[in-house]
Amino acid sequence: MTRPVKLACRHVWKLYGPHPERLVGKSPSLDEIRASGHVGAVRDVSLNIGEGEIFVIMGLSGSGKSTLVRCLSRLIEPTAGEILYDGEDLLKASPARMIEIRRHHMGMVFQHFALLPHLTVLENVAFPLEVQGMARPAREARAREVIALVGLQGREGHYPRQLSGGQQQRVGIARSLAVEPDLWFLDEPFSALDPLIRREMQEEFLRIQKQLKKTIVFITHDFDEAIRLADHIAIMKDGAVVQVASPEELVLAPADDYVRAFTAHVSRAKVITLGRIAVPGVPADVAGTLPAEARVEAVAEQVVTAGRPFAVEREGAVIGHVTPQAVIDVLIGRGG
């Protein structure tokens, strides 16, 4: 199940301080950076982000997530490295080319919504299209479509200050989708929302993604959120990427104590898939068939209630079965 790479970065550095460019050639260690009075916001990061996947970047506050994502979209000029979008090095793109790429291929959602207070919902959503020079009727029609997609019909004439936080972020999402980007950046889009609304928005997000299948770079510092959404997660610490893996691998095989600390309190049922606990062979009395990607938590009730094993299949082929006992073991955190 390997996807073609949509966005990649190679040895990206972003140092803040008096002479970042002098320092970066030497591939300095964290201590060297600090000793020379610099801040290593992003240190030697290389990533591959596959087409159509949700790639989550995680880390504590100040670990460099925002900086990295802004390097990827070149809102911040990295000190060194390469950013490859469909094989094209963005850092070598001219300003005009960059504007072109952003106008048609990128969208971004912001933690604090970044809505324009002087524009209505409709005008906000249509704004990226207006900037491209699209005529008013066409862009408003398109804006109405995306507003409907995020479920805000009837609010087109409102101003941002007249909306709740969740509604405002829906506008932010609609706006970033208006240009039909194929790369979608979301920088902690739900952090400013209440837990209940956050949950609702996550579902909404998954629903939209199911429909649109964008390549997504999603930032969060909430591990629960990450495992709910991610195909892959990159964990950052002090500007460097510590581990890139699927949620399941992170939990089962954390690269170091830092990652382990992140994953320690996570209920394993949320991340472990049936594929991982399936045992070969298929007993005769199976109650049904379940996909290998399904998470234990999601199917536990079904399996335990049935009281009989289920066959597990991946991409149409049956690879084994799971027993209710194996599911219960995962749920109560026994074995693995």
């Binding site: 802004r70 979209s73 809102l75 504007i99 072109e100 952003r102 106008r103 048609h104 990128m106 969208g107 971004m108 912001f110 933690q111 604090h112 919504f113 970044a114 324009l116 704004f127 990226p128 207006e130 900037v131 491209q132 970033s176 950046f185």
Partner: peptide
């Protein structure tokens, strides 16, 4: 964030200032 948004929307420097 708003400045970042303007850039992400593909504003030219003039558009960013005016709009």
């Amino acid at each position: 964030e708003i400045v970042d948004f303007a850039n992400m929307a593909g504003c030219t420097p003039g558009q960013r200032m005016r709009k």
